[in-house]
Measured scan of single mutants.
Amino acid sequence: KLPPGWEKRMFANGTVYYFNHITNASQFERPSG
Rank of each mutant, 00 (worst) to 15 (best):
L2I: 05
G5I: 03
G33Q: 12
P4R: 07
F11N: 15
A25P: 00
I22G: 06
N24I: 05
Y18L: 00
P31A: 01
L2V: 04
G14E: 03
E7I: 08
S32E: 13
T23N: 07
F11W: 11
F11Y: 15
R30N: 10
Q27E: 05
E7Y: 03
V16H: 07
F28M: 12
Y17F: 08
G33S: 13
E7T: 08
M10T: 14
A25R: 10
S26P: 03
S32Q: 13
I22P: 02
V16S: 08
M10Y: 14
P4E: 13
R9A: 05
G14T: 02
S32V: 13
S26L: 14
P3E: 06
N13F: 02
K1S: 14
A25K: 13
I22F: 12
K1D: 15
P3V: 02
T23S: 07
E7N: 03
Y18D: 00
F28Y: 12
K8P: 06
S26M: 15
S26R: 09
S32M: 13
P4H: 12
R9W: 04
N20D: 05
S26T: 15
A12I: 07
E29N: 09
Q27T: 11
T23Q: 05
P3D: 06
Y17H: 04
F19M: 03
A12F: 06
W6V: 01
L2G: 02
P4G: 08
P4W: 12
N20H: 05
G33K: 10
P31E: 02
F11M: 15
T23K: 04
S32L: 13
T15N: 07
N24W: 07
E7R: 04
T23I: 05
R9P: 02
F19S: 01
P4A: 11
N24Y: 07
I22M: 11
F19N: 01
Y17K: 03
R30V: 12
Y18R: 00
T23H: 04
G14R: 02
H21I: 15
R9S: 05
G14P: 00
G14K: 03
W6H: 00
T15Q: 14
S26W: 15
M10A: 11
G5D: 08
T23L: 07
G5Y: 08
N20V: 01
F11V: 06
P31R: 01
K1E: 15
E7P: 00
K8V: 15
M10P: 04
F11A: 14
R9T: 06
N20M: 01
P4L: 11
K8E: 15
N20A: 01
E29L: 07
H21V: 15
Y18P: 01
H21N: 13
N20F: 03
G33H: 13
A25I: 14
E7L: 04
K1F: 13
Y18G: 00
T15R: 10
E29R: 06
K1M: 14
W6D: 01
P31K: 01
F28S: 10
P4I: 11
G5T: 03
F28I: 12
S26G: 07
T23R: 02
N24E: 09
I22W: 09
A12V: 09
K1H: 13
E29G: 07
E7D: 06
S32N: 12
Y17V: 07
P4F: 13
K1Q: 14
M10Q: 14
Y17G: 04
G5H: 11
P3N: 04
Y17P: 01
R30W: 13
N24R: 08
P3M: 04
L2Y: 05
K1N: 14
M10D: 06
Y18M: 01
K8H: 07
Y18S: 00
P3I: 03
Q27M: 07
T23V: 04
T15S: 10
R30E: 11
E29Q: 10
F28R: 09
K8M: 15
L2N: 02
N24D: 06
H21F: 14
G14I: 03
P3A: 06
F19T: 03
E29D: 11
E29T: 10
P31G: 01
A25N: 09
G33R: 10
N24M: 13
K8F: 09
A25G: 07
K1W: 13
N24V: 04
H21K: 12
V16F: 11
M10L: 11
G14Y: 02
S26K: 10
T23Y: 06
E7G: 02
G14Q: 05
K1A: 15
L2P: 11
N24K: 12
F11I: 06
L2R: 01
N13Y: 02
T15F: 09
V16D: 04
G5K: 02
Y18H: 00
H21G: 07
K8I: 15
Y17T: 02
Y18K: 00
F19Q: 02
R30Y: 14
N24L: 13
G5F: 09
N20R: 00
N13Q: 04
R9Q: 06
P31I: 01
F19G: 01
H21E: 09
R30Q: 09
P3C: 05
N20Q: 03
K8W: 08
F11G: 13
L2T: 03
A12Q: 11
A12G: 09
V16G: 03
F19R: 02
M10W: 12
P4D: 11
A12S: 12
E29H: 10
P4K: 10
S32A: 12
Q27W: 05
T23M: 06
N20W: 02
I22N: 10
F28N: 08
G14W: 03
G33I: 14
M10E: 14
N13E: 07
P3L: 05
R9Y: 08
N13I: 02
R9I: 09
S32I: 12
E7W: 03
L2S: 02
G33N: 12
P31L: 01
R9M: 11
R30L: 12
F11S: 15
F28P: 07
N24T: 06
T15W: 07
Q27K: 04
Y17I: 09
F28Q: 08
Y17L: 06
T15E: 12
N13R: 01
E29A: 08
L2H: 02
K8G: 05
F11K: 11
S26V: 15
Q27V: 08
I22T: 09
N13A: 04
L2D: 06
L2K: 05
Q27N: 04
Y17E: 05
N13D: 15
T15V: 13
K1T: 14
F19D: 01
T23G: 02
M10V: 15
V16Y: 12
A12Y: 06
K1G: 14
L2W: 04
G14S: 03
K8L: 15
G33Y: 14
A12K: 11
F28W: 11
T23F: 05
N13H: 04
H21S: 14
G33V: 13
R9F: 08
N13V: 03
K8Y: 09
N20I: 02
Y18A: 00
F19H: 08
A12H: 09
A25W: 08
